[in-house]
Design a protein around this nucleic acid. Structure first.
Lengths: 248, 248
DNA sequence: CGCCCCATTGAGTGGATTCAACTCTGGTGG
DNA sequence: CCACCAGAGTTGAATCCACTCAATGGGGCG
């Protein structure tokens, strides 16, 4: 229960791994200084709850390391994940006191937190922050809309395949490659969390993973490590258009 | 085919029905003047396509009258609605040339369009616009997350009931009432569009509507006019928490 | 070792889909 | 005027995909 705190290196902004992608991406050095004065780091172990829906939330944050999830729960226990926050993603609504969703660390997580009220003031005075936040929010909205297509119309197998491509694409190792050929990564989620993400049961997730493995689309090494021999073959299983998609 | 153009009154900003809720809500009169110089109105008949996914889009817009929908279509024809735009809602991504989704007028629609590039410049120079746009985008993201819960975890009956409450809540007539007792409104969507919204088939939509009618939860007058004798009874069918929800 | 947690697999059920027939309404033209 | 048609909606019967309930497998840790 009272394990030793996870310790990530306490970064300076200058060496921050998410410096160029997070909400602070466009800041000049003087703006960074201002942000630095209202920021602090926090760490959470895998499985810990970061905030409960309805709780007062006196900070907003960037995910520096690890993966966190937003979930909604119905009275009878049905659960749906509604957000998956990877490094550089933003957590919280500046002009809202209380959280709307449960936020959970699905792996060990380090957050770079900003005190909410000062951050809110910075939004008004620092266009580089508010512009970036708008851009990130619009990107999240697009992601949510892809997700809605997945939830509403895709088969279980397509859901799994789509999920794997989503995770693979955000892997640092993937960014270098052309997006063809072999890809490998660790799943940051349990089968149950995957089920919550995809609107399935954990048994269905397990069955479909086995199916993709049986058909040679993926290889499983241990429970969590995934090897994709040919990324295009996986893409064909997602149900999405084959053309590369629209550029920004 | 070449029906007479629908004509909505060509509003001045001062008398605009969405003046206080749209992206321009916080503007001062000098800012409104600037907006007015880059704006123009456009009307579409019910059923018309406003933009196709992938098309170049040289404007962004506010919905003034009517209802428009964003939809995604898979290669084999499966369709999912991913956005429903009611009066005052915002359409388009300022810093994106091409549309990501099909946009369709589901009723007769009037848009207040802003030329995209000048609007983009205004975002940089007019905090009242960019602040409001951020707020609206965050609201849409919240709505998308509710929608994801609906798509991923709710039963067909709960989906229909939830949809009806969503429409009812945004009815002007509803705003006055306390949110109890009788409510009545016209559905702005066909059964097929409802199915696309809810991730169902149109047959299932029809069956569940009949079910709610049989059980006295709703009354149908014609195909489109809905009467809800007791809003709380409908709420109980949505599967959502009974407590009023979180305030902003 | 033995326990716990996560994951896999199997058998049977059920809710939503598919395919198909039918109804209702409004509009058009003979 | 009304017969006819097209489009939207309803209803029925059979099917199927994912769910539920239940048993089993396997790895890590006290």
């Amino acid at each position: 229960m009272s394990k030793p705190q996870i310790s990530f290196p306490q970064e300076q902004c200058a060496e921050c791994p998410i410096r160029h992608r997070a909400v602070c991406a466009r800041c000049e050095s003087d703006e960074l200084e201002k942000l630095e004065s209202i920021k602090y780091y926090r760490s959470y172990e895998a499985g810990q709850t970061i905030v409960w829906a309805g709780d007062k939330m006196d900070f907003v944050a960037s995910v520096v390391h690890g993966v966190a999830s937003l979930t909604q729960t119905m009275e009878d226990g049905r659960r749906q994940m509604v957000g998956l926050l990877l490094p550089s993603d933003f957590l919280g609504r500046p002009n809202r006191e209380a959280a709307h969703y449960d936020v959970t660390a699905t792996t060990d997580v380090q957050l770079c937190c900003f005190r909410r009220v000062p951050f809110l003031e910075m939004l008004d005075t620092t266009p580089h922050v508010s512009q970036r936040l708008l851009e990130m929010t619009l990107d999240e909205l697009d992601a949510a809309r892809e997700w809605m297509l997945l939830l509403g119309r895709k088969t279980a197998r397509e859901k799994i395949a789509s999920f794997l491509t989503i995770i693979a694409r955000r892997e640092p190792s993937f960014q270098n490659t052309v997006g063809v050929g072999q890809v490998a990564f660790d799943l940051p989620l349990t089968r149950e969390a995957m089920a919550d993400y995809l609107g399935l049961t954990l048994e269905t997730v397990s069955r479909q993973m086995s199916g993709l493995k049986r058909d040679g689309v993926i290889r499983l090494e241990g429970k969590r490590h995934i090897v994709i021999p040919d990324f295009e073959v996986l893409m064909d299983e997602t149900g999405d258009d084959s053309d590369g998609g629209v550029l920004d």
